[in-house]
């Protein structure tokens, strides 16, 4: 069987190509692959199309680094603070480069990826009707239902080149356990051509088999498994660490002007080699403060026969 375990650096270098469309942040505010995003920036990938439902800060960081030519998303910003300043600078002033955006809704992103996962060209919905997103420059179209004659909006399938998906644990073949609200993680895994899974822990095949209902992504779809503890920080990872709210507040202030953002970028991304150095810079005290303090373990179930 193919070796699928890679370091973050190797995985991004090998599987994310210039011009790729890439899903990141599929679980919304939690389990955001910040570590993978920062490696994309360090490697200076070019002309990416970022795909996601909402993006809490990571899209803003990748856009500000000049790696992005297009965004297909429902929302780009900083969830607790509001706008993403890099997103605004790129769209309003073309800094550091001009980007295009296809505006979706959260539902439309899930439907588009679901259509991609089903291998069909589009899916109808009762959302989007009457909105600015139905204008001609946007990807959606209208239609009358051939059965009921009601008005429908059509969402075309998205088939991303790659999906970078963050989860709690996987085995060496990429069979991946996830718990908590998963957003569009499964749809992205089923629709994308290349799937990169970033996990807190690599576990044995037995751990996966003992709880197959917790498997969100079957390993045969997975190209790379990357073990990167704290890879989702500052977003939370259920069962491992809480959200670092303060980081979102300080980033909001620091990225307000271009100069401030470049300083942030040098300190937290470009000036570091990898996630280990990031965690050192973050500091033990901060890490300790984010650890899970109120454990709530699930009870075992019987899968026997």
């Amino acid at each position: 069987m193919a070796q699928k375990i890679f370091s973050m650096k190797e995985a991004v270098s090998r599987f994310i190509e210039d011009g790729d469309s890439v899903v990141v942040g599929a679980a919304l505010e939690s389990a955001i692959p910040f570590s993978a995003g920062h490696e994309i920036v360090r490697q200076g990938k070019k002309d990416l199309t970022l795909i996601g439902p909402i993006s809490d800060m990571l899209f803003d960081q990748i856009i500000g680094s000049g790696c992005v030519k297009k965004v297909i998303a429902a929302w780009v910003g900083n969830v607790i603070m509001g706008v993403g300043y890099n997103m605004r600078r790129a769209m309003e002033e073309g800094i550091p480069r001009k980007i295009e955006m296809d505006d979706y809704t959260n539902f439309a992103i899930s439907l588009a990826l679901h259509a991609g996962a089903l291998g069909i060209p589009f899916i109808p919905t009762k959302s989007l009707l009457g909105t600015g997103m139905m204008s001609e420059e946007q990807p959606f179209k209208g239609m009358e239902c051939p059965y009921t004659k009601e008005k429908l909006a059509l969402v075309p399938a998205l088939k991303p080149d790659a999906a970078i998906l963050q989860a709690q644990r996987a085995d060496e073949q990429g069979n991946t356990h996830f718990w908590g609200g998963s957003g569009v993680t499964k749809e992205a895994a089923l629709a994308a051509r290349k799937v990169l899974v970033v996990v807190e822990e690599i576990v044995s095949r037995k751990v996966i088999e003992r709880d197959p209902n917790r498997t969100l992504i079957p390993g045969f779809l997975v190209s790379a498994v990357i073990q990167e503890p704290w890879g989702a920080h500052p977003s939370p990872m259920q069962g491992y660490y809480n959200r670092d709210h303060e980081k979102y507040m300080t980033y909001h202030r620091e990225s307000k002007d271009r100069e401030g953002y470049l300083k942030w970028l040098k300190k937290w991304v470009l000036g570091l080699k990898n996630r280990d150095e990031y965690l050192k810079l973050l500091g033990e005290e901060k890490i300790k403060s984010l650890l899970i303090k109120h454990h709530r373990k699930s009870l075992p179930v019987d899968y026997g026969y």
Partner: peptide, 14 residues
Amino acid sequence: IRLPGSGGGSDIAS
């Protein structure tokens, strides 16, 4: 002025 976008807002409103 670029604003963040719909999120799920448009779906809720519809």
